[in-house]
Design a protein around this nucleic acid. Structure first.
Length: 203
DNA sequence: AAGTAACT
DNA sequence: GAAA
């Protein structure tokens, strides 16, 4: 399948406006079913401080954080299985991921007013040869990308609803984070805020 | 340090 | 004082 054009930020591919507005709305409806079966929760870092995002997952595995550390778990903290990844979301993966494998986790992060995400690497997966695909929905977010080690120079870009970022190859292990969101810049979510979907092969 | 604060 |  042909892949759409993308900008590059330090090797990360950024597909601006990849998802049409009607599809964004449909995905939000799909996610209502996900969060009904797997409610958003506020994760604790292993250091005892809560994260400012609320999160849940879909797929075979979900990403969780608590005093035991960061890891993938096959159950929601409530003991239930994670719901399936919505088909429309899998379609986006197929458009941009460039791998035969299917994602095993769709992490759903909700950024309300003031929520942010510190600089980190995605390194809890078994195979760093598999890509990470990140989908932005709702309010704009200031996305920052650094180096493969902590503390180097960084570059930032604003992500808007419908943008898709692919981290692969040399960019797969770059540090990245969300500095802040700009509330009220999208009406996709009725009560505002931003949803980020992160698709990953885990095993 | 997937957090927070301080500092420039 | 805001932003990085």
């Amino acid at each position: 399948m042909d892949r759409p054009k993308a900008l590059s930020l330090r090797g990360m591919r950024i597909y601006k406006g990849l998802i049409a507005t009607e599809d964004q709305k449909a995905i939000i409806e799909d996610l209502r079913e996900v969060t009904r079966r797997a409610p958003l929760f506020s994760p604790m870092t292993p250091y005892g401080k809560p994260m400012s995002v609320r999160m849940t997952s879909a797929g075979r595995f979900g990403w969780v954080s608590d005093k035991a550390g960061y890891r993938y778990a096959d159950r929601h903290p409530n003991g239930q299985n994670w719901p399936p990844i919505p088909k429309r979301v899998l379609t986006i993966w197929e458009q941009v991921a460039g791998t035969e494998r299917s994602p095993e986790c769709c992490l759903v992060n909700f950024y309300g007013e003031g929520a942010k995400m510190g600089m980190h690497q995605d390194r809890d997966e078994m195979d760093f040869g598999q890509p990470v695909v990140s989908i932005s929905l709702g309010d704009e977010a200031l996305f920052r990308v650094g180096q493969a080690t902590r503390g180097g120079k960084t570059e930032s870009v604003w992500l808007q609803s419908g943008d898709v970022v692919v981290m692969n190859g040399e960019a797969r292990l770059l540090y990245h984070g969300i500095d802040r969101i700009k509330t009220g810049t999208s009406t996709l979510l009725r009560d505002g805020g931003r949803l980020n979907l992160t698709l990953r092969v885990v095993t």
